[in-house]
């Protein structure tokens, strides 16, 4: 069969424009086999990529967002997105295992309103963190977010306080929290739980910062240099322990868990 006959089963990398078979692209967790660019990974795929097969049990799936401000058109927008993405909200939380070690895990999904943080995201995360504390489990959060959920106004802002308080409480009880920053992590999420890990990892080339590049450029009236706010920049400036390619994420997390005594002595 001629190559063209495969048609839609080929994927073009948005970064290098080279084509890869759909199967290959998926098997590589949306990392381009040619140039190594990390494209967006959905939350379900992310869970599959790091957890032991069949180990995931969702927590807090009943926690839905509401419309605290009575914001015009917001409930309909949520409804449409739920249908379109199959997600209830911008984060999935639950318990799973990595190399047999139980962990509490949360994964944000940028398909859902740029994974902005509203009350449902804040509440799901807080419930997950409290579950980790009560069960003595390590916590892993894959962050990705445009920041606060504008449509939820001040209630969205307060989720920064809520998640920070939950993580500070978990930390004071001796819990291990690994924060993994993925593209993009900005705004109120960067200025709260994403920046509070005992260990901070980042995927290569992710945009990570507080203010968005467009806002900064408007404020200072000049173009930002190439690579500004990317993972490599954040590591250079001291805000990331290690940059970990997606293919090595699972083994890196497993190693960090072992280094903190999970799965070795504590079983």
């Amino acid at each position: 069969m001629a190559l063209e006959d495969y048609g839609a089963s080929f994927v073009m990398c948005p970064s290098c424009s080279r084509r890869t078979t759909q199967a290959n692209w998926r098997a590589n967790w949306q990392v381009c086999p040619t140039c190594g660019a990390h494209q967006a990974l959905s939350a379900p795929e992310r869970l599959l990529s790091v957890l032991d097969a069949g180990s995931f049990v969702e927590l807090g799936e009943h926690i839905d967002g509401r419309d605290p401000l009575g914001f015009p058109g917001y409930p309909q927008k949520l409804e449409d997105l739920r249908k379109k993405t199959g997600l209830e909200e911008a984060v999935i939380t639950g318990v799973g295992a990595i190399d047999g070690v139980r962990v509490v895990i949360g994964v944000m999904d940028s398909r859902f309103m740029m994974a902005s943080m509203g009350m449902a995201v804040g509440e799901r995360l807080a419930v997950a963190v409290e579950y980790a504390k009560n069960g003595g489990l390590p916590l892993i959060l894959f962050c990705a977010s445009g920041g606060a959920r504008m449509q939820e106004g001040i209630i969205s802002l307060m989720q920064m306080a809520k998640t920070s308080a939950a993580i500070a409480d978990f930390s004071a009880a001796g819990g291990l929290y690994i924060s993994v920053l993925t593209h993009p992590t900005t705004g109120g999420v960067m200025a709260s739980f994403a920046s509070q890990g005992d260990i901070t990892l980042a995927e290569p080339g992710a945009l990570l910062g507080f203010a968005g590049p467009r806002v900064i450029e408007q404020t200072i009236g000049q173009r930002l240099p190439e690579g500004f706010q990317r993972s490599e920049f954040q590591q250079e400036h001291g805000f990331v322990d290690q940059i970990v390619p997606r293919g090595s994420m699972r083994e890196t997390l497993a190693k960090l868990l072992r280094l903190h005594g999970y799965g070795v002595m504590r079983g």
Binding site: S164, A191, S195, I216, T219
Partner: peptide
């Protein structure tokens, strides 16, 4: 302040630690 220096010095991290 949304400026370059603020980002280079981790204003997001600094705010996050205040909340904590």
């Amino acid at each position: 302040y949304p400026g370059m220096e603020a980002e280079e010095r981790g204003v997001g991290e600094a705010i996050a630690q205040c909340l904590s």
